[in-house]
Computed example of a mutant assay.
Amino acid sequence: MNRVYVCSCFGVTDKQVKEHAAAGACTPRQIASVTKAGTDCGSCVRTIQG
């Protein structure tokens, strides 16, 4: 199984982001509150927005 990491700082995958988005997380900040993605170096925030 191939994992595509969206946030390498915290090891968050695209699958995790999609699951949280499907559960109602609509913004990068909401995704970050659950996964911490985008809260360290910030380079993944634009990817999460997409």
Rank of each mutant, 00 (worst) to 15 (best):
G38E: 12
A22D: 02
G38A: 02
V34P: 00
R3D: 09
T27F: 01
S8V: 15
Q16W: 03
V34W: 01
K15W: 04
S33K: 12
A37E: 03
I31A: 05
D14A: 11
A22K: 11
Y5V: 14
F10V: 14
A32G: 11
G11H: 08
R29P: 00
T35D: 03
D14S: 12
T35R: 02
V17A: 05
R3A: 11
V34Q: 00
A21T: 01
H20Y: 09
H20R: 05
Q16Y: 04
A21E: 00
K15M: 04
N2P: 15
A21P: 00
S8K: 15
Q30A: 08
Y5A: 10
A23T: 03
G38W: 00
A25Y: 03
A22I: 12
R3Y: 13
F10D: 14
C9V: 15
F10P: 05
P28H: 07
C7W: 13
V4C: 12
A25T: 09
E19R: 11
C26M: 15
Y5E: 15
A25H: 02
V6C: 12
C7S: 15
I31H: 01
A21D: 01
D14V: 14
I31M: 02
V12F: 04
Q30I: 09
G38Q: 02
P28V: 05
V6H: 04
G38C: 03
S8G: 06
V4P: 01
C26S: 08
A37L: 06
K15V: 04
V4F: 10
E19M: 12
T27R: 04
A32F: 06
V6G: 02
T35Q: 00
A25G: 10
Q16H: 06
V4N: 13
A22L: 07
T27N: 11
S8D: 14
E19G: 09
R29L: 11
N2W: 12
A21I: 01
T13H: 08
G38H: 02
D14C: 10
P28K: 02
T39W: 00
H20D: 12
V4S: 07
S33D: 09
T39C: 05
N2R: 12
A23Q: 12
V12Q: 13
D14F: 07
A32Q: 01
A32L: 07
T39N: 00
P28L: 07
T27K: 10
R3F: 04
V17I: 04
V17E: 08
A25F: 01
T39I: 06
C9H: 08
K15I: 05
Q30C: 08
Q30D: 13
V34G: 03
V34M: 00
R29K: 14
P28Y: 05
A25I: 01
K36T: 06
A37Q: 11
V17K: 05
F10E: 10
K36H: 09
K36S: 03
H20F: 09
A32W: 00
C26G: 11
R3I: 09
I31L: 08
Y5F: 14
G11T: 13
C9K: 10
S33R: 12
R29T: 13
V12G: 04
A22W: 04
T13R: 10
A23D: 04
S33A: 13
T13Q: 10
T13G: 05
A23H: 03
G11M: 08
I31P: 02
R3T: 14
A22R: 06
G24D: 00
A37S: 05
A32D: 02
A21H: 00
R29W: 06
